[in-house]
């Protein structure tokens, strides 16, 4: 008899729907940083729990803040990677 699954995932909710005052803005990179993983990639909706409407606005804002050098595109930039000297 299959016992009930012990693991009950915590209730995911959309932070922007719940807290209206939370500004969804490319200038506020500190808030957007919660929705980006450590390598700078945007985290999926099913993990953060944001609703479709806010996720669409979120991706636009993150891409704008990346363009204005407020957020990183990738963790390791081309100039940091040591170029192999071609001998």
């Amino acid at each position: 008899m299959a016992f009930k699954k012990k693991f009950t995932p915590r209730k995911k909710f959309c932070r922007f729907c719940a807290d209206k005052a939370l500004p969804l803005d490319y200038k506020r990179a500190d808030i957007l940083r919660d929705f980006v993983n450590e390598r700078g990639k945007i985290i999926a909706r099913r993990i953060t729990g944001t609703c479709a409407h806010h996720q669409r606005k979120l991706t636009v804002e993150i891409k704008r803040s990346r363009q204005m050098a407020l957020m990183i595109y990738t963790a390791t930039h081309a100039c940091d990677v040591k170029k192999k000297s071609v001998l």
Binding site: R66, A69, L70, M71, I72, Y73, C79
Partner: peptide, 16 residues
Amino acid sequence: DLAYPVKKQMRGFYVR
């Protein structure tokens, strides 16, 4: 400070 180097600069002046 910028998140990545822009025109070989790591710092920039922002105006809104």
